[in-house]
Amino acid sequence: MLACKVKITINNISAQKAQAVKSALEPDNVNFPENLSLQIENVDNKLVFIFQGQDNMKKMIATIDEVLEHVQVSLKVIE
């Protein structure tokens, strides 16, 4: 059982923007495959993503990839 935790922090982001990104991504966190989870926290001027997974590294990387793309799009459209 290989357990892995990945933490990605986005610094210097306004609370309003952080909240928007969080609301945009959270609803899709329900259908994750087994053994994979994502928590999003909005603290101070930071947005923190915590990925936790077991065994399936490929899936985890793919998920992180997609989530980061979504973050990018979200920030871009808010302009």
Binding site: Q19, S23, S74
Partner: peptide
């Protein structure tokens, strides 16, 4: 969905 939600929330 992400685009929509981002705009709606912000």
């Amino acid at each position: 969905a992400v685009v929509a939600r981002s705009l709606a929330s912000y």
